[in-house]
Nucleic acid binder design. Structure first.
Lengths: 182, 182
DNA sequence: AGGCTCATGTAACCGGTTACATGATTAT
DNA sequence: ATAATCATGTAACCGGTTACATGAGCCT
């Protein structure tokens, strides 16, 4: 479901191919929504069938042909409605296999858990490093759009950074408590 | 996948029925993993078929019969291995339809977005209130188990609180910036 | 009489993942 | 040579959700 709205959102900025959508997903909302290219193509087909987007094949020389999709009026309407209707509890959606592991880590030694948490922390640090380029991506797109649009992009980057910091701080607190047991 | 490990985790504490599992899920890890009762029963069947748990029907008087499941040695082994093997990047799993909405909220007015974010904040506050009882739940179970086990439960509660606080702070920052535009 | 708790399940569906397949052009 | 980029898809699978079905006993 969410993927289709993400696609509509990007097509609302400008027409794109499935291939370009896959890239733009990766460059932007990848942090909170990961999209497989196979899934994107599937969803494009569905959206076209429902009349929310329409595709046009473009013949290219020296490159494979491509299919450029544009959002329809119906698609725009559906998309805007989705944004406005703050539907049921998007808040309480946290899903984390990692936290299940933590919850049950009383079954392993403190040493083992410390190792796990340190790996978690390291992954987060690496992830944060990878995210440093996102503001650049925003700049890249931003001169094509007004600053009001990009303000929201900044909000999501801010969210990402805040979340990573919270996670790291938490991991450190846990590690510290576990080290006291050694 | 994760649900089955959650089930193994609880059965590793003590044998339980599907019904009891549904309750204990709700009382504990509900914040980061929500389990439907239908799903639990399905998973129990699968786990039994794979020899990780085994069920025994208990005839009751005055109540419907029930099936109590216990973890097998094989199940214990699989469960512990799952905890220890810090598999591929559980870190970068954040999935949030809400953040997609935020990302694309340049399509609606600041007033509209403020409304959305205030609702988000309110949902979080309500959620936090609902979570206040969890430490009690932990106390309830804890005298049956050692404090080392419950330490990890505390970790997850700490995580939940930290996350909610981060989310609320972020929402407030966004709201403030949007209000400057009015 | 009505609602809650105890108790277990089936069937249909759906969003998303993994693996696989193809093939030309361009840059190193 | 070989790796990356451009470009689009199919098929099988799977974890999880929604809706539905059933029914006894207990409390108010």
């Amino acid at each position: 479901m969410s993927l289709s709205y993400g696609i509509l959102g990007f097509l609302n900025y400008s027409p794109m191919t499935g291939y370009e959508l896959a890239k733009v997903f990766k460059d932007s909302i990848n942090f909170f929504w990961h999209a497989q290219n196979s899934h994107i193509y599937l969803e494009l087909k569905k959206l076209e069938k429902n009349g929310l987007i329409q595709g046009e094949t473009v013949i290219q020389i020296g490159k494979p042909n491509k299919k450029v999709f544009s959002i329809t009026d119906k698609g725009k309407k559906v998309f805007i409605e989705w944004i406005i209707n703050n539907s049921k509890d998007e808040t309480a959606e946290t899903k984390s296999a990692f936290l299940i592991k933590v919850f049950f880590s009383g079954n392993v030694s403190p040493k083992q858990s410390i190792k796990m948490l340190k790996k978690y922390k390291q992954d987060l640090l690496n992830y944060a490093k990878g995210m440093e380029t996102i503001p650049n991506n925003i700049d890249m797109y931003s001169h094509a759009l007004d600053s009001y649009q990009t303000l929201y992009w900044q909000f999501t980057v801010d969210y990402g950074n805040a979340l990573i910091k919270t996670n790291i701080d938490w991991a450190e607190r846990c590690i510290k408590k576990l080290e006291e047991l050694l």
